[in-house]
Every structure is written in structure tokens, then in C-alpha cells.
Design a protein around this nucleic acid. Sequence first.
DNA 1: CTGAGCTCCTGGGAGC
DNA 2: TGCTCCCAGGAGCTCA
Length: 279
Amino acid sequence: MPELPEVEVTLRGISSSLINSKIREVRVHYPKLRENISPEFQTLRNMKVLSLSRRGKYIIIRTDVGSILMHLGMSGHLLVCSQDSPLKKHDHVEIILDNDKVIRFNDQRRFGLFLWIPEGQDVYKNRYLINLGYEPLTDEFTPAALFNALQRHLKKPVKQALMTNEIVVGIGNIYASEILFSCRIHPLTPAGTITISECEKMVPVIKETLLTSIENGGTTIRDFSGADGKMGYFVQNLNVYGKSGEKCPVCGHAIESIVIGGRNTYFCQKCQKLKKPVN
DNA sequence: CTGAGCTCCTGGGAGC
DNA sequence: TGCTCCCAGGAGCTCA
């Protein structure tokens, strides 16, 4: 479910409740997620929340005694509610605050991650974060940076390369299709043949696509919602994702879908021509 | 080193 | 109506 915009929307949604408050306790109802939730969580009491940040699709809540590292997986979301509201199915973890609010982590498919990193350990050196690539919304993510990163994955289809977190973080299956459509680049184009001028086109499109989606509250397909339970509206801005057989908004040709790396990929054959191999 | 494929899990929808 | 099969927005891991 969540790609970078959905995680950012979630982060913004929980931040006002968390900042300047204390986590009274963390209640774990079902520990078996992607990784077993550490029993240490149950022993934590009255932690002061210092900051909230995001790295790729990971959310980091830093407190005075350590950090919580979270990932929403494919179906996870965080919901802020009052402490007396009833638990829902798949509410696996509750972060109980000292301000009458509670943040609930709900994850139907249990691919989410909930890790405790004690104070003294560098969160960013955690094995989940250490190899992550460029943060797309920062100034370091430039056309040259993208070009160089793609050169390390010569044969990989560019669509798969965009989804590789060691290159750039936060772009999942939906936005990868959308970004390539906006850039008129065929998703099967080998990453190594992407030119610097194509990177000059792609980088601003990546930033703009993600930012626009954040402004629209993310993309809701099936069950994504922000921390307030509201749906995201970026789905109305989608051009090709999930629209096979429908008309391309630019040329009217039918949108096609193919499977790349096991994932459905949507594109317009006419607008996104595959380049002829050099030689 | 790279890429392909498998894996964790539940639920919704299609097809019979 | 009910069963089975397939698919889904992630990403780490293993193996060739």
C-alpha cells in the first residue's frame, strides 16, 4: 500500500499528537509481523518523544531512551484515536500517549515492521536503513546522481531500478509506472541506456509526482488512509496505473500492462517507445 | 556482483 | 451460495 507519499502523509498525521508528548506505554497485541516485535517494548514506560522523521518508507520516532523504527509494509497504517475507541481487527500495536490519545498500528497482511532501537545505537546504521539510496525530495537527488546510480544496474529494466531502494527510496509500483509515463520512457528500457538528459527529465518529475501526491493526501487504492482515517485523493491524478485497456490521456491509444519483476506495470506503447539498441 | 525467485500474511474478487 | 485460485501498494533473503 504505502509508498513514500503515503508514509509522509501518515507521518504528518501522527506528528501533532506525538510531538511534545510522552509515550506512556506500548501495548503489543500481536507480535508476529515481518520480524517478531521485541518483548522489550512491553517494559517501556513514559518515554519523552524528541523527534519524528522519515527515511524512505521507514518512520522513526526518537525518544529520550531509544527509537521506534517502523515500516508499514504493504497494508499497514497508523491511526490516531482516543483511548476508549474499540480495537479493530488487525490492530497489532498501540502506542499509548499521555494526552488521552493512542496511535494504533493496523496491518492486515502483517508485512509491517516495529523495531526498538535503544539509545546509544545509531538508528541510521540499522541494517534496514544503512544501504538505502537517495531520498528523492532532497537536493542531493540530482540528475547526475540518478544517472550514476543507474549505471550500477546496467541491464535492469528502468522501472525495476526506480523501485530499488538502493538507488532511490520511496518509489513503489504505482509511482514507478506513473513517473515513467510522464517522462515518456518505456518501463523495460535497460537502466544502463538511460541518458543523462533523460535523468534531467526524470528527477523533476519524480519530485513533482511525489510532492503532488503528498499534497493530495496520498493515493488510496483499496484501503490506504491517513492517520485521521481520511482517504487520499491522488488516485484521481493517476494516468496509467491500474488502467489497462483504457485510453491513454495523451494519445488515446490503449494502455497496456505487462509484468516486470513480478509486478504489474502500466504504460502506453505509443507514448513510451522502447529505444532501439545501439549497435 | 547481479538478477531471479521465494517468502512472510490476509482478504477481496473472479471464475466455476 | 460456496469453493478455489489468483492477485495485491514491500522488500529482505537465498541461490545460481
